[in-house]
Design a binder for these strands. Structure first.
Length: 326
DNA sequence: AATTCTCCCAACCGCGAAAGA
DNA sequence: TTCTTTCGCGGTTGGGAGAAT
């Protein structure tokens, strides 16, 4: 279609983002919400292309992103999902709301691929301690079993959720629980360590230049301030795991809560593993995006008639030591 | 201590899909 | 229906940080 690259323009800055740029972007999104990225550089004065702004937000600045080491459970999830979905990182990310597709992709490429390759080669290292006893054939059989179980789980989830998730294409306000009543994300809700710095900067910056309350958020601005304050006060000496406490994150989430479904159940805790549980599903393309994996998987599952059991993916991941047996 | 190597991740690029005129 | 614009995804890469020599 001959679309010129958005970043070809002269004067568009590339490379690492500065804290100042982050502040500008975050404060703009706080006021206007994510989306309409085309207008972001224009309205903020950032010398960045819209794509760069979007990526910076979704991969780094967005509240609720957990950074740092992946847990063993997350590893298992990723391995399972990769087996199921292939390299569909965005779809996988919808099952790990605290991780970005970029993070998952990076982690897969830099860690898990190697790990699995090592295991396949019959070598063993840390992490998958029992693998040394497993021959490649066993590993593959196990993987097949896992895939089958995951398919069952997805089928089950589909049959349970279909009426609601597939018919309810708009973010349901009735699903929105009050922040205080929502189950929290898994422990370890975290903002990037460098984002902690940004948060501190923001705090100072907002103190200096308080903004009038805006559109969808008298609470928004307040919430964000609270979150930032919470963060800055609690992050002293704290690693990413404690960068923002739960209140902070609830507050942060609330700026979109008017149209967000109850998305607070973490993957770890959520027995009904559905993309609809994604914390940020409404930020860009509400349900459509998250329907995609299901549409494809539905077809796959129904083609193969895979309903065989009530286990769900999460429980499978949590309860069996499948990957540990790799 | 200096240099080289390796690893990792944030950011970029290009493509296709979706939305809109 | 066609064309243009915008968005989102997946692959790739540049460069910083730490390890090794």
């Amino acid at each position: 279609m001959g679309r010129p690259p958005c970043c070809d323009k002269v004067g568009v800055k590339k490379g690492p983002w500065t804290p100042e740029e982050d502040i500008i972007l975050v404060s703009y999104i706080q006021e206007h919400g994510p989306g309409n990225w085309r207008s972001v550089p224009t309205n903020t004065g950032l010398l960045r292309c819209s794509k760069s702004c979007r990526l910076r937000w979704t991969n780094y600045l967005r509240p609720g992103i957990k950074r740092g080491n992946f847990t063993e459970h997350e590893e298992k999830m990723i391995i399972h999902l990769q087996a199921l979905l292939g390299n569909r990182w965005a779809a996988m990310a919808s099952y790990l709301p605290q991780r970005t597709d970029n993070d998952i992709k990076n982690y897969w490429n830099t860690h898990l691929k190697k790990k699995l390759k090592k295991l396949q080669d019959g070598k063993n290292d840390d992490g998958f301690s029992s693998a040394s006893q497993q021959c490649k054939g066993q590993w593959e059989r196990r993987l097949q079993t896992d895939i089958r179980l995951a398919k069952k789980a997805l089928y089950e989830a589909l049959s349970l959720d279909k009426s609601s998730s597939l018919t309810d294409t708009k973010p349901s306000t009735t699903n929105v629980s009050h922040p205080s009543t929502r189950p929290h994300q898994v422990e370890g809700s975290a903002y990037a360590s460098s984002a902690e710095n940004i948060a501190r900067l923001l705090e100072n910056w907002m103190k200096k230049s308080p903004k009038p309350a805006q559109t969808n958020s008298d609470t928004t601005q307040t919430s964000f301030n609270n979150a930032v304050a919470t963060n800055s006060s609690s992050s002293e000496g704290a690693h990413s795991e404690t960068a923002l406490d739960h209140h902070g994150f609830d507050s942060l989430f609330s700026f979109n809560s008017s149209n967000s479904p109850d998305a607070s159940q973490s993957v770890d805790e959520n027995a009904n593993l559905t993309p609809e549980t994604s914390l940020f599903q409404d930020e860009s393309k509400p349900n459509m995006e998250n329907q995609v994996p299901f549409s494809l998987l539905e077809k796959w599952l129904f083609d193969e008639g895979g309903a065989q059991g009530p286990e769900d993916l999460i429980n499978m991941c949590l309860e069996d030591n499948t990957v540990g047996d790799f």
